[in-house]
Design a protein around this nucleic acid. Structure first.
Lengths: 149, 149
DNA sequence: AAGCATTGCATAGCATACTATGCAATAATA
DNA sequence: TATTATTGCATAGTATGCTATGCAATGCTT
């Protein structure tokens, strides 16, 4: 049934639903990792660093598609909170290399567990095939937006 | 091919991809509506108000699933920028009713056009059937997260 | 009616994200 | 080698979003 002058149905707008979904994911993840002293913003950087630390800020910016000042700010908070140390590169005076503290290393299992739990909870209403479809569709949308300007 | 100790593959994590996708959507929408003097944060409120103004802050908070202090802050910016006026309800001294200015009304066509353009661009790589699937899957995930915890 | 609970909104404080800009170190070029 | 361009990072300023909290107006209970 059509309503007369409705020009924009937000619940049928991809952008609106994507934003809402992202905020809901963030709220749930926040609740899961707050007991660990972590916030959602540090999570992507930690994922990279758990895999391999000693990388540069630039490496994180490129891999995570986060703007450089955002990453600088996030790393400052992580340093303040004792999750990383920054040491200047020996051969290039511009570069800061990022190293995890033992404290940050010790959080990996619990933190990724919390993230896995949120993902599982969020996708619980979808069949395994639909979950794969959902991920695939999202990755294609991301690729489209990444390469369009 | 499996890599030895990788415990968390972010590009296969729903939460990570959702967050990235939402930031990309926001960047594109921001670029589209900035020439109108709008930001992404005011957009959901404007969508509601274009449909019907004279509603309360509480109405917006409930419909948009945005926390009340966030909405109060957003409405303050909108008032500062001449998009809305707030008038106290005549029968209930607690309530502020929100009214659009002519300036805000005049932006509806261009702003929703920009949002439609972003949505179209984002979904351009999907078939019409896949677009419907994508929206349906997202709405189901939103519903799941809405009703859990 | 008095006292308590609820509701609607504002404020404080912070995290996360952006653009614009500056600066120092290095690289490239003339 | 001197100049210019590029690169890596930091800072400033702002928007968007959250939790915690306070307060005034209203509603409820006795």
């Amino acid at each position: 049934m059509l309503i007369c002058c409705m020009t924009f149905d937000r619940k049928n707008s991809a952008g609106y639903v994507v934003n809402l979904m992202a905020r809901l994911f963030a709220r749930h993840l926040e609740a899961g990792i707050r007991p660990l002293g972590l916030g959602t913003g540090v999570f992507p950087a930690l994922l990279m660093l758990w895999e391999k630390d000693g990388v540069t800020q630039r490496d994180l910016v490129d891999a995570l598609e986060i703007e450089q000042p955002t990453m600088a700010n996030t790393l400052s908070r992580m340093e303040r909170d004792g999750l990383i140390t920054r040491r200047r590169d020996e051969t290039d005076g511009r570069v800061q290399r990022i190293w995890l503290t033992d404290k940050a290393r010790a959080l990996e299992t619990k933190a990724t567990g919390a993230a896995n739990a949120v993902n599982a909870k969020a996708l619980a209403g979808l069949s395994p095939g639909q979950q794969k479809q959902f991920m695939d569709l999202m990755r294609r949308v991301v690729a489209t937006l990444d390469h369009s300007r």
